[in-house]
Amino acid sequence: MAALCYRVARVDDIPAMMSIRNNVRENALVHAVIGHEDYVQAMTVDGRAWVCERDGEVVGFACGRKTQGDVWALFVREAHEGRGIGSALMERVEGWMVEVGVDRIWLVTAAETRAERLYRHRGWIEAGVRAKTGEVEFVFPAPAGP
């Protein structure tokens, strides 16, 4: 198996990122349309994104937005799930958001999904369930003080 490469995402990665996002089994977009400019905004103006490549192909990505304090996206191609890619991408997003001083890091995900299990496994804390959507909101545990 080829080695995985993690790096900061570039604007020219957006088509691959959109393809991954638009072809997931869980957490599929139902009512929202996220376009190219939304990705540009999220990863260059509001925050930063990372990709995971295997043999030059983007197989996963994650994006955190400093301005909103949220993890905007975490998605892995189905054929590459279960290999630790999502966790490795989350580690980069979490570390960066803590480093740039985000006080409260949060995200939402559909209930009873692999994503929900990943966040719980990584120590994220459930902050509630959104009444309108049924999505679970999580917050990242604050780093321990000195």
Rank of each mutant, 00 (worst) to 15 (best):
D46Y: 10
H121G: 11
R92S: 07
H31M: 09
Y119V: 08
A127C: 11
N23A: 09
V8H: 08
R54Q: 14
V108F: 07
V59T: 05
R104I: 07
R77E: 13
Q41W: 08
I125V: 15
C5F: 14
N27T: 04
V71F: 06
D103W: 10
A73C: 14
G101K: 09
V76A: 06
G84M: 04
R7T: 11
V102W: 03
P15M: 10
V102E: 03
A79V: 12
M43I: 04
G101E: 10
G69S: 01
A115H: 02
G95A: 11
V71D: 01
V98M: 09
E116G: 11
W72R: 01
R10P: 08
S87R: 15
E57D: 13
F138N: 00
W96Q: 07
F75V: 03
V100I: 12
L4D: 03
E99Q: 14
Q41V: 10
T133C: 13
A115Q: 07
V76R: 03
P141D: 05
V24E: 06
A115F: 06
R65V: 02
N27C: 11
T109Q: 02
E57A: 15
V51K: 01
A110S: 15
G95Q: 09
V129C: 15
G123E: 07
D13Q: 12
E94H: 14
Y6E: 07
G84A: 06
V76Y: 05
A88H: 13
C5I: 14
R104G: 03
N27A: 03
A144Y: 12
V108E: 12
S87K: 15
L107R: 00
E53N: 05
V45D: 12
V8D: 11
A9Y: 03
R25D: 14
D103R: 14
T113A: 04
F75C: 06
V58Q: 01
Q41E: 13
R77L: 11
V129P: 08
W72C: 02
H121P: 06
M90K: 07
C63Y: 01
V93T: 10
Q68R: 09
M18R: 04
